[in-house]
Design a protein around this nucleic acid. Structure first.
Lengths: 126, 126, 126, 126
DNA sequence: GTGGTCTAGACCACT
DNA sequence: GTGGTCTAGACCACT
């Protein structure tokens, strides 16, 4: 369900957050269904429970999950909506930046070509 | 050389900055050549000299121009390099945001299609 | 500047957050001035650096501070505004709850008397 | 016994619930005594029987009333106790919020003054 | 069993 | 020196 890249530049807890969000968006875990427990998942991934706790706390802070002490952690009813909004915000930021490039004389075609060159044929962030 | 859109959401002095930067990048004014004087350009564009002063001060702060008291304002030798670096920074920000979308399961093709749809057929930011 | 109550029901990191917010609101540390470093303050208060890191990370997430790696942590320019907004939100919640009591027949006077009785002559939360 | 404000922000069925709860707390209808029938009350208040049905169903769900098929709806023996507990919960929430304000440096006196100012001289929520 | 907090201590990147 | 991340392991409250 989740795989950690220990050589990645992005910290383990962020990898966990991103991947669990993907799992939830793909409805592999549905509303009010439990996430794997901290102890179980930390053993499975061979990472420290504290690292996982940090990732889980962030999902909770965002409202994507809720926890019941003594029972476990569950997907919030509005998790999908929160995650979708989050993605829209990313696109808005991208559009604002592209606007600036357009105003300074770049064409949309050239901008997209630069983006494509940057991502095709490499894993820039890992 | 420059045109002001009085209905745009972005302030006039920013429009002036963006367009003068474009003029310099396009080498319509070369290194050590003078920019139009504040008095001349403010009359030409029918804008307040103070607004133009604000734009020119920002270009100077960035190191894109330099001024000689009693003589005018000129394009810096390293103006092109500064402007290019500035554009690179924009692309870096865009790439970071696209990275996040890729990590959350979007394909590069889908991301580019959403961007294209957003910009083709309108001027979303004005 | 800060004092920890180890017998309080509220966790240490929350006590630190609340008290640093108070310090910032009182302008004992001003905009762009540094907070005590994690190592220094953790020794001074005899708490673990990780506990303090958790408190500091929350202040950063709220936008109240910003950190420069290798240099320290500083009060954000808009810290006061964020903290004030935060307090307004608390009053809004209180008002909504009091509305419900008013609708169910309580008088404002009785409600305030109950609140007073609750807080005068005791430290209910410690 | 009950009056509906059609210009209030809160929905009609909630107004009915709140006011019937008040009626019960004030012992205008005692334990095991009948509430007005849906048909009668809906005509009296000129509201849709379905709206009233929704309010009555909620009172039943909370255990404040019980219904005898073919006979009507009656006040539960433990209605007063349920309603009192419900009010206590509101006070607990208010107290928790006030605790946060006290911890951040507000005095109880100032908090109460802000509350008073908010409610005296207007009906802020209607 | 579950999650939440805290300590002790290591190592990294950055100035 | 600074902050950021991670491990190992303890103890608590709650079911």
């Amino acid at each position: 369900m989740i795989s950690i890249n220990r050589y990645s530049k992005s910290p383990i807890y962020e990898q966990v957050i991103t991947q669990l969000e993907k799992v939830i968006l793909n409805k592999e875990i549905n509303t009010d269904e439990p996430l794997p427990s901290i102890r179980t998942l930390s053993q499975e991934l061979s990472i420290n429970p504290n690292t996982l706790q940090k990732a889980y706390a962030e999902l909770e802070r965002k409202g994507i999950t809720y926890s019941v002490i003594g029972n476990g952690r569950f997907v919030s009813p509005n998790a999908i909506s929160i995650l979708t909004t989050q993605k829209e915000a990313l696109f808005n930021e991208i559009n604002t930046l592209i606007d600036e490039l357009l105003l300074s004389g770049w064409s949309l075609k050239d901008i997209i070509n630069r983006i494509k060159n940057n991502f095709e044929g490499g894993f820039p962030n890992d």
